Amino acid sequence: MEPSGARVRFVLLSLFTGLVSGLEITSTGPTSIEKASGQSVKLDCQFSLASEDSGPLDIEWSLLSSDNQKEDKAVILYSGDRAYEDYYAPMKGRVHFNSADPKNGDASINLTGLKSSDSGTYHCKVKKAPGIRSRKLLLIVMVKPSKPRCYAEGPTQEGKDIVLKCISSEGTSPLQYTWEKTSDTKLLPASAVLDPVGGTVNVRNASASASGSYRCTASNRVGTEECILYLNVTPSPNTAGIIAGAIIAVLLILIIIAIILFCCCRARHRKKYEKEICNEIREDVPPPKSRVSTARSFTVGSQRSSLGSMSPSNLHEYALKPQYDKIPSSEEYERPPSHVPLPPPSGAKMAGPNLSRMGAIPVMIPAQNRDGSIV
Rank of each mutant, 00 (worst) to 15 (best):
Y318I: 10
D72F: 00
S330T: 10
P174G: 15
S330C: 09
S330N: 09
K289T: 14
E153W: 06
S32H: 05
N68A: 14
G29K: 01
A83G: 10
V143D: 15
S313C: 14
G241F: 03
N205A: 15
P237A: 09
W61N: 04
G245T: 12
S169F: 01
L252Y: 03
S21P: 01
T239I: 08
A210H: 05
S209T: 14
E85F: 05
N314C: 04
I374C: 08
Y88E: 11
R266S: 10
S4A: 13
L261Q: 12
D195I: 02
C227T: 08
K42N: 11
D72C: 02
R135N: 11
L251R: 10
C264H: 02
S173R: 14
D81L: 12
T185C: 05
Q46P: 01
G120N: 03
S293L: 12
M358P: 02
P312W: 07
K147R: 11
E331L: 10
C264D: 11
A249I: 07
I259E: 11
K272C: 06
T112P: 03
L23M: 02
V11Y: 11
L137R: 00
K73F: 03
Y122D: 05
S209H: 08
V163A: 00
G198S: 12
S116Q: 07
S211I: 00
A360Y: 06
L137F: 04
K70W: 02
I361N: 10
I247W: 04
L23G: 02
P341M: 12
S119R: 01
S14H: 01
Q46E: 11
T31R: 11
W179I: 03
T234P: 04
A360C: 11
I109P: 05
G199T: 03
P344G: 05
Q368R: 13
P343K: 13
P30W: 04
E276L: 09
H96I: 08
V95F: 01
S54W: 06
Q39P: 01
Y88N: 11
C166N: 00
L43H: 04
L187D: 13
R94V: 05
L63V: 06
E24L: 08
V340Y: 14
P328H: 02
P90K: 06
P344D: 12
V222P: 10
P189S: 02
S99E: 14
E334P: 00
P237F: 03
K147C: 04
L12Y: 04
K272P: 03
P322N: 13
T178P: 01
P174K: 15
R215M: 04
P237K: 09
I257S: 14
V250C: 13
L175Q: 15
R215K: 14
K160E: 15
I76C: 06
G22R: 15
P345I: 11
N220L: 08
A107I: 02
E225K: 13
R221Y: 09
K326I: 05
P343A: 15
A360I: 01
